[in-house]
Design a protein around this nucleic acid. Structure first.
Lengths: 204, 204
DNA sequence: TTCCACACTGCGGTTATCCACAATTGAGGG
DNA sequence: CCCTCAATTGTGGATAACCGCAGTGTGGAA
């Protein structure tokens, strides 16, 4: 049994066993690791925030619908790309799902190649997102290690101020500024203010 | 006549005069500056890349359809947010438009308040995009003023390297590095490598 | 030929940054 | 009481960055 936290899986969520089997088979023939779920409830009960991969989610299911499942996932902070499949979609439903962040919205019957293409793109998107999350987590961990004073000095360093100016503003000696500055660089794993600025540059 | 390059306008493109009039009136009552066009061709003939505002675009029109107009706008590098209106949309059409970057996709009859809300959000999005474009244009202009050698030195400065190391790598004197470095800061309008790094930090 | 832009360099002097070594004080926890 | 951590500071010495002043050489355009 693959571990969804480290091996990206395409999760097929559909109450129709024939569809689940067909999609499982399709993905297997395309070397896409997949796992099938017979209901949205089953999937949600198992879902973990650190899973990697993507979700192929049928809209119309017996108990909980795909859209309800999607809303629940969003509430839990899901970041897996969600591809909706539906036999009877309408425009507001599709538009609403996409604007809530759904990755795609496809109508059945769906072309095998088209679906696999979408899944592969979704997996790539998830991989990029994961890499970005890890970087941000590392930065956040390092920032959390700074003492309040170090953090304060760091902001002024990032504002491009001289040590002498920082010392004046904080009413401390230049030597103290140097100590804090040096410790900031050490804790943030950088060697210069340029590297620090680049590490902490705002990203959309 | 307002100048669309500087005054944000909501462009109503619909071959149905009654709709145009109704929407013009609606926007006027909500203090949203608008301009109506009887055909996609008319709008496209007038369109300029520096216009500000947004576009409310009907899909089904006599000659050129809204979707064709949208494709033409994309080819021309349009950045105005596009809100589609349709009386008979289907899911693939809606999904396709949104994935090509349409701002929204609404079905007629559309609720006045809902439409105005969407338009106001689109206008805000356009304003943010415009501000970002201006910043990027300023940076690009400044970068274009650098000599090739200055640009080369700048890259090494941004890599956090000492002047001495840069001099070694480029086989020039340290004084020359200092000269280039100083001129880079001057032309880029910054006072330190930190500011330069922040000005040029990658953005998605 | 002259002028200009670009690239380059040396000298001397100043300011900024960095840090080893050493030390003190205060707060909090075991 | 002892220990750890955070904040602070001084001394002395070294390296890095900055720049005025002065100058040279090359290539291209007028």
């Amino acid at each position: 049994m693959s571990n969804p936290a480290t091996t990206p899986l395409t999760h097929i969520v559909d109450d129709d066993e024939a569809i689940r089997d067909a999609l499982s088979w399709l993905f297997r023939t395309r070397n896409v690791a997949a796992r099938a779920w017979a209901s949205a409830e089953d999937f949600l009960a198992a879902w973990q925030p650190d899973w990697q991969g993507c979700i192929v989610l049928d809209i119309r299911m017996r108990e909980m619908s795909g859209l309800e499942c999607f809303d629940a996932l969003l509430e839990r902070g899901n970041t897996l790309p969600v591809i909706f499949l539906t036999g009877h979609g309408d425009v507001p439903m599709a538009v609403g799902a996409l604007k809530k962040g759904a990755f795609d919205f496809l109508e059945k019957p769906v072309d095998d190649n088209a679906l696999v293409d979408v899944v592969i793109r979704a997996l790539a998107t998830n991989a990029r997102h994961q890499a970005n999350q890890e970087t941000q987590a590392t930065v956040a961990t390092r920032l959390a290690q700074l003492t309040p004073r170090e953090h304060e000095v760091m902001q002024l360093v990032l504002a491009g101020k001289f040590n002498k100016v920082i010392a004046d503003e904080l009413n401390i000696s230049m030597r103290t500024v140097e100590v804090h500055r040096s410790r900031v660089f050490e804790k943030m794993g950088v060697r210069s203010a340029v590297e620090l600025a680049q590490l902490l540059s705002p990203r959309d």
